[in-house]
Design a protein around this nucleic acid. Structure first.
Lengths: 189, 189
DNA sequence: ACTACTTTTTGACTTTTGTCAACCATCTTC
DNA sequence: GAAGATGGTTGACAAAAGTCAAAAAGTAGT
């Protein structure tokens, strides 16, 4: 549990009262490459915190999969809208490298928040950070060309390019794998 | 103030203790068509609640403006990342129809939340809703063609098409005004 | 080290969308 | 009610990216 608390804490204060409960509710689990944490059609009942490894969320559209987001060490991840609304998810979550994750169920999180309302603020601040990230991603996708999007990613999130297969990155950028391969080829010269 | 409370309340409970303070802190203001609530480079210090009218957030890229979001009656709106981080905004907020807005400053909101921590949960729930909306918007933009995106918008948010000029809608969908005009022409047949 | 499998690259061609320019229709305003 | 704005439409052409197919490179697993 060390990692979770030590990695949330630098940015967000966790009230001492809630620390212990938090430690008890998150459970550490090990997953192997290519395992699916959730599938399209299931309700996503867990929130994950990545201690080690990486995962991705993706949609399946007409047999093609399209990466939606990537998660690395110290990120929280879940199929957010399913987790919150308790409706069936439209996405899959796949383990990309063998990973060590901490899990908490929606019910436990609710319990935690109602017992320790002083955690609400921590959660709000985390949400703010994730909202801003998503907004940034959205606006980049909006007004940049494929090449610019790739170069931005290379500059701002090189770990994505280093650790995720090209095909995953291509759909994340909203382009075909062939186009990404060509862009990358161009860039080397 | 009636509208704000009555329109938040159906979805979110506002603790009675905080009601009055909330009413005092939001100030009603009137804005005219084409006024800018904030400009690129300024810090956005206010959060707005739309009682009547509509507004949009847009980026200016190489002299072109690109709509980022639209706000209508009973929406909250601000240049979120600037409001939260207190850094300069990268976007403009423009009043599209003459509008009646309720405003609260960041400092007042902070004050409100520290005096009435029971509001944290309300804010968290509002954030969840907005996050899910943005995620939906993002994924649609990601894997649908221009025509599908237009048809989705027509189905799910016809008010946008009815109340926003075609040029604003086009950049919101990530396509040129000409392409949108052609799609719309096709659809009529 | 060899096969089987997956991922990436390359080439030829097609489709989609963008750009530029002209044109038309309102709507405002003096 | 004429003169500008503003917003929307249309056409011709150009550019960007997608598709299909095949080759090449990389990665396991035995």
């Amino acid at each position: 549990m060390h990692n979770l608390l030590s990695n949330i804490s630098p940015n967000f204060k966790i009230p001492a009262t809630a620390r212990e409960a938090l430690e008890h509710m998150f459970v550490q689990k090990q997953f192997n490459k290519n395992e699916l944490l959730i599938e399209d059609g299931q309700v996503c009942r867990h929130m994950y915190f990545l201690e080690q490894g990486c995962i991705r969320g993706f949609y399946n559209i007409d047999g093609k999969d399209i990466s939606q987001w990537f998660g690395f060490e110290n990120d929280f991840a879940t199929s957010f809208s399913s987790f919150i609304t308790r409706h069936a998810a439209k996405e899959y979550i796949q383990v990309v490298e063998d990973s060590t994750l901490w899990c908490i169920s929606r019910d436990q999180l609710d319990e935690l928040l109602s017992k320790y309302p002083e955690l609400e603020k921590t959660v709000r601040l985390i949400y703010e950070q994730y909202y801003i990230r998503l907004e940034e991603r959205y606006s980049n996708a909006h007004f940049k060309t494929a090449t610019e999007r790739y170069e931005d990613l290379l500059k701002n999130s090189p770990h994505i390019i280093q650790r995720m297969p090209l095909g995953y990155v291509a759909s994340y950028l909203g382009i075909s794998a062939e186009t990404l391969s060509r862009i990358r080829g161009q860039n080397k010269k």
